[in-house]
């Protein structure tokens, strides 16, 4: 094995593991030997509960994996719509001057509003059903995706567009072969941020109005004063978020292979 790659492995696996273990130990020490024990369960208790919930329902009907899947489905629905819409709006804003002139001011106005601010409005507009949640999640992701895609579309190298035309490409071909690929890294940056904001939005939405999903698990834990359940919810969120982020990075590596210089 090459020396440098062993060193790299140590960096990516060993060091984060050290951090986690340290946190667990500190947590355990605090709970066992200080009065924080009144407020926090031990790591072991949380783990036990976590495993228990894998097979047994939380609340009436659903087990933890089911709650997770429900939240995940909501996120993915909202996120996919946000991505498609965001990419279309971002690129049209970046490539067509009139659209930019019309849409951009509106967008600049909407942009600073945090995703959760839409919750009351969404409930008034769409009731407390799935539509409202999808809307809130959509708003959470949409803005980031538009901002980044727009930046990418504006940075398309005009000389490369010239090259494409010179080689005989039509406007549409130039779009799919030059504009879109050169936006991909930007779009991905937007989608990565977008996915985490969507994930935050779903929790907020579920905490406000829902009978299932991880957000509800946490709120329900609060209602019955069950610390361990709250922690199970939080950890489930964290793990899921981590997996989603990893998945996005994986996709990026595949789609943006051409950017890897290889060191």
């Amino acid at each position: 094995m090459k020396k440098s790659s062993i060193k790299q492995k140590a960096g990516t696996i060993l060091l984060p593991a050290v951090g986690f273990v340290a946190i667990l130990v500190i947590w355990w020490l605090l709970v066992s030997f200080t009065r924080i024990g009144l407020l926090l369960p031990t790591p072991l208790e949380v783990l036990k509960r976590f495993i228990y919930f894998l097979g047994n329902p939380i609340g009436k009907a659903f087990t933890l994996p089911m709650h997770l899947l429900i939240s995940l489905r909501r996120v993915l629905t909202g996120f996919c719509i946000a991505s498609v819409a965001g990419i279309i709006v971002g690129i049209s804003m970046g490539r067509f001057k009139p659209i930019e002139a019309i849409v951009r001011p509106i967008f600049e106005l909407v942009r600073p509003i945090p995703g959760v601010a839409w919750i009351p409005l969404a409930i008034v507009w769409f009731g407390i059903g799935e539509t409202a949640k999808t809307f809130i999640i959509f708003m959470g992701g949409f803005v980031n995706i538009v901002v980044n895609t727009y930046a990418g579309a504006r940075h398309v190298d005009e000389r490369l567009m010239g090259v494409a035309y010179m080689l005989g490409a039509s406007k549409i071909q130039a779009f799919f072969r030059v504009v879109l690929p050169s936006c991909v890294p930007y779009i991905f940056a937007g989608m990565q941020v977008g996915l985490s904001t969507c994930w935050m939005a779903v929790l907020a939405a579920e905490m406000v109005s829902s009978f299932e999903g991880v957000g509800w698990v946490i709120i329900a834990g609060q209602d019955i004063n069950d610390m361990a359940q709250i922690f199970v919810g939080i950890i489930a969120i964290a793990v899921m978020g981590l997996l989603l982020a990893a998945f996005m990075r994986f996709m990026e590596r595949i789609l943006c292979r051409w950017r890897e210089r290889g060191a």
């Binding site: 190298d157 490369l160 010239g162 090259v163 035309y165 010179m166 005989g168 072969r177 690929p181």
Partner: peptide
């Protein structure tokens, strides 16, 4: 009035499509 496939160009600085092999 604009670029056309009848006139090709080889560039001084490389202008390749980085996303294509």
């Amino acid at each position: 009035t604009g670029p056309s496939p009848k006139r090709g160009m080889v560039y001084q600085t490389t202008n390749l499509f980085m996303w294509y092999n």
